[in-house]
């Protein structure tokens, strides 16, 4: 079923659709809250991922740290933070990688220091297409 918020551009809320699609990948990400799970993942990422019922494209997106793809495959950003933290990276690295166009850490910081991404032109898919 379509939702009212579906035409907000570049936005991936966690709802019943992403819940089902992303259940296993999110539960993997959530497991990184535990130090012993982080150790297992650090030892052999692939082997640890294989203990979850994730799809192959989800596992590859994790291994290759493709964050935007992870969201498209059902991961939620709050869960994805656990992977960024596992890598001891600041969140701006993930933010910049997901941004359109893609931004480096410094470019993302500069955008935010300049007042952030403006709301005008970013409210709807229609605004994006006409922009």
């Amino acid at each position: 079923m379509e939702r009212e918020y579906d035409n907000i551009p570049g936005t991936y809320p966690l709802d019943s659709r992403t819940y089902r699609k992303g259940y296993h990948v999110n539960m993997f990400l959530m497991s990184l809250n535990k130090a012993e799970c982080r150790d297992q993942f650090a030892q052999d990422e692939r082997a640890y991922l294989d203990t979850f019922k994730m799809k192959e494209d989800q596992k590859l997106a994790v291994i290759e740290r493709r964050y935007l793809d992870l969201l498209k495959l059902g991961a939620n950003v709050y869960y994805a933070f656990k992977l960024v933290s596992f890598d001891r990276q600041p969140p701006q690295v993930m933010y910049g990688q997901m941004a359109e166009p893609r931004l480096t850490f410094d470019e993302f910081q500069q955008m935010m220091l300049g007042g952030g991404r403006p709301i005008n032109g970013n409210r709807s898919v229609e605004e994006w297409n006409n922009g």
């Binding site: 936005t11 991936y12 941004a99 952030g116």
Partner: peptide, 17 residues
């Protein structure tokens, strides 16, 4: 207050709202 952490629109804020 206003913030977006995921997706291509990440970084959007809205001081007026």
């Amino acid at each position: 207050l206003s913030h977006q952490l995921g997706g291509e629109r990440v970084g959007v804020v809205n001081p007026e709202v």
